Amino acid sequence: MMFNTLKPQVETILSHTEKTVNEKLFAVCELLENHIEYYNWVGFYFKNGDKKELKLGPYVGAPTDHTIIPFGKGICGQVAVSNQNFVVPDVSAQDNYIACSITVKAEIVIPIFVKGENIGQIDIDSNTPNPFTEADERFLEFVCKKVAKIL
């Protein structure tokens, strides 16, 4: 399974002491986008200080205008409030969806917890309808737990 081969690579990237946190996060984005065919946009959003909003961090994929997302808005904003994984097999079926690109068909967002607080998330868009499985969720939870350790 591809996820098992990617796990040690994620750990290696995050353990590089000579790189900044943002460089490590960008490298994780590149790894996932390059090795998982249906991951077409991979990025991190983080809580923006004390504000009830998320701020875009490192990402790989098409440029986005959505650099700030209020809590509760779109899939990412909903995860900031719910603290739960959110898998969207068909973005067109979501009322509270912020479209980044007309090519996006599905999205998965997994929160990142540091000391029990939801401080951010990994966000993945796919141009493939309904591509995400429970294996994606478990793998991305692994990634988020490893990322939390460097934040």
Score class of each variant (00 low, 15 high):
M2F: 10
M2D: 11
F3W: 12
N4K: 14
L6C: 05
E11Q: 10
T12L: 08
I13Y: 02
L14H: 08
S15L: 07
T17W: 02
K19V: 02
K19S: 12
K19I: 01
T20E: 02
T20S: 15
V21S: 03
K24G: 06
K24L: 05
L25R: 03
F26E: 13
F26M: 10
F26K: 15
A27D: 12
V28H: 06
V28W: 05
C29N: 14
L31I: 08
E33Y: 09
H35A: 11
Y38H: 15
Y38R: 08
Y39P: 10
N40S: 10
N40E: 01
W41F: 13
W41Q: 14
V42I: 12
V42R: 11
V42M: 10
F44V: 08
K47G: 10
N48G: 05
G49M: 05
G49S: 09
G49C: 07
D50W: 00
D50C: 01
K52T: 12
L54H: 08
K55S: 14
L56G: 07
P58W: 00
Y59N: 12
A62N: 06
T64L: 08
D65W: 03
D65G: 14
D65R: 15
H66P: 05
T67C: 11
T67A: 14
I69P: 14
P70D: 11
F71S: 14
F71M: 11
I75G: 04
C76D: 10
C76F: 08
Q78P: 06
A80Q: 10
V81M: 14
N83R: 14
N85G: 02
N85P: 11
N85Y: 07
F86K: 15
F86D: 03
F86W: 05
V88Y: 03
V88S: 03
D90M: 04
V91P: 02
V91K: 03
N96V: 05
A99F: 00
A99R: 11
C100S: 08
S101W: 01
K105E: 08
A106F: 01
A106Y: 02
E107L: 06
I108T: 06
I108C: 06
K115Q: 13
G120N: 01
I124R: 05
D125P: 10
S126V: 05
T128D: 01
P129I: 02
N130Q: 03
P131N: 04
P131Y: 02
F132H: 03
F132N: 04
R138D: 12
F139I: 11
F139T: 13
F139R: 14
F139Y: 12
E141N: 12
C144N: 13
C144R: 04
K145H: 04
K145A: 10
K146W: 00
K146Y: 00
V147M: 09
K149W: 00
I150Y: 04
I150N: 06
